[in-house]
Design a protein around this nucleic acid. Structure first.
Lengths: 286, 286
DNA sequence: GCACCTTTGCGCGAAACGCGCAAGTAACGT
DNA sequence: ACGTTACTTGCGCGTTTCGCGCAAAGGTGC
């Protein structure tokens, strides 16, 4: 148009101030960003153009905001805008379980195949059992009893699965329930199978955990199920990271992946443990 | 180069087939898409170029795949690629609570202010109480007792808050726990305050819910707390969507927003109910 | 063998991106 | 009160990415 497109838009901005095109003045940057997160949370996603229009700023500004918020982990950037960043890993299995996704997925896959229709299974807390829960989402006529928040979350919308959540105090680190309430509830149910996770597992002492509250619960779960499985990727075998132990029953099954030391596997087999080594590769996701 | 750039790349493709540049042939479309989801889940995100290179197809194909998978809700599209889609609305408060975000947020904000240090509060299941839980995330020296899965999820990483999850059978529709296990656990705790949600609330009959299992639980929760609050946005007042009712105690507080009918509010006040009407606007998020 | 559907590659115009610069604004110290 | 500093915003511009349409290739069933 004229010689100075810049000065023209400056005039527009002046006018904007005077007449308040967006009404009641513009929000400070900080509030605007907070509001963006708000909006994104409200309807899951927010588009750049819409936001720019809504706040009366240019798309550039919105993009900068989104870049900032993304770097802060409050949002996730998409093509035309951003989406509410459900902190994958906090609620579900995400970054947290990146370590050994394939292994855990494969182990969980094998475990899921063992569970028949109309059975009742107990699932421990932990990322591996969360994978198992995920594998059970589309199952029908199945009852899952659990102390794991991640497990419940995975099955929250699995209409075909009956989910029984034992109560208890929430351990923020593991997202599992522990304490008297869990133990009392456990006394009121029994199951066909129990699938346990483990911070470490040895032939001599059994499952290793951070404290006795957890190991006690694991022992109780084992006592309430006919068949006991321990799901532990190869790195857990023979490890003793803590000093609380859950003793194993006479008969149980160890499910691990090919990353396990053959010598370690042999040690378990020699002790009469039924050891399953699943193939990491070629197990489709969903 | 030559007159036909197309024919040149066709030759390249021919060569690709013969020498197997990507090794062992190309995956069928269906498997490739599955593998893309797998990869995205594994490391959280996947870039178009990387995927194209990995599968030996063009970026166009990958984009089409991503578009398809996005429409199926399996992935979320980002600028240079895609990311693992943690379905926000399923786990936490997302689309589900879209309806009345501001109202619920404001109500929850007021409720949070009532809770003092070292108190124990019972939180019902529901989106409004989930908002309340969210408002309590950064609190310290506080015990939250709940039957709401969304509440537990919100507080899963709130290290300062002691979370006691009552057990029970999971209602997939409301993400709440019900049944004998929940009732039994409730008998073992009491609290300073209880915050209840409601599908409908009337002066004469009290809280309206879909079935007696829930209303029974609500009555139990009310009996276990010194102070009773019902959090219900304006649209819930006077509503009778179902036919199961929870009777109210002699003294209780109704917390609603300005969307409530003044006549309706007056009806509650006349009946001796303590009614709080919070301001929807100007309550910062987080 | 043929017709039909799906998948793939490619080109091209449109959209979105982000970087750098300049101008404006708020906070702070002297 | 004034200047300095840090921050924010708008704009231009080159770059990247997107997605649509078309034609060829591959697969399937009659």
């Amino acid at each position: 148009m004229s010689e100075h497109p810049t000065s023209e838009s400056r005039i527009e901005r002046e006018l904007e101030k005077l007449i308040g095109s967006q009404g009641r003045g513009r929000l400070p940057a900080r509030e605007r960003r907070s509001a963006i997160v708000d909006l994104a949370w409200t309807d899951g996603r927010a588009e750049v153009e819409v936001l720019a229009d809504h706040f009366g700023v240019t798309a550039s500004t919105i993009r900068r905001d989104l870049a900032l918020l993304t770097s802060q982990g409050k949002l996730a950037r998409t093509f035309g805008g951003a989406m509410a960043h459900a902190p994958v890993g906090e609620t579900s299995l995400g970054q947290r379980s990146h370590e050994a996704f394939r292994q855990k997925h494969a182990i969980a896959g094998w475990a899921a195949e063992q569970i028949g229709t109309d059975e009742t299974v107990i699932l421990d807390a932990g990322t591996t059992t969360a994978h198992l829960a995920r594998a059970l989402r589309h199952r029908d006529r199945l009852t899952v009893v659990t102390i794991g928040l991640t497990v419940v979350t995975e099955l929250a919308d699995a209409d075909g699965v009956e989910v029984l959540c034992l109560g208890g105090r929430l351990r923020h680190i593991s997202h599992g329930l522990v304490g008297p309430l869990a133990e009392a509830a456990l006394e009121r149910v029994s199951a066909d199978r129990v699938f346990l996770g483990a911070d470490g597992i040895t032939v001599d002492d059994g499952i290793c955990e951070a404290n006795l509250e957890q190991t006690r619960l694991k022992e109780l779960m084992m006592a309430r199920a006919a068949q006991v499985y321990v799901l532990a990727d190869g790195t857990k075998l023979g490890q003793r990271p803590f000093h609380a132990w859950a003793r194993m029953p006479a008969s149980w099954t160890l499910v691990t992946d090919e990353g396990a030391e053959p010598a370690e596997v042999q040690r378990f087999r020699s002790a009469g443990v039924d050891v399953i080594v699943v193939d990491d590769r070629s197990r489709p996701v969903d």
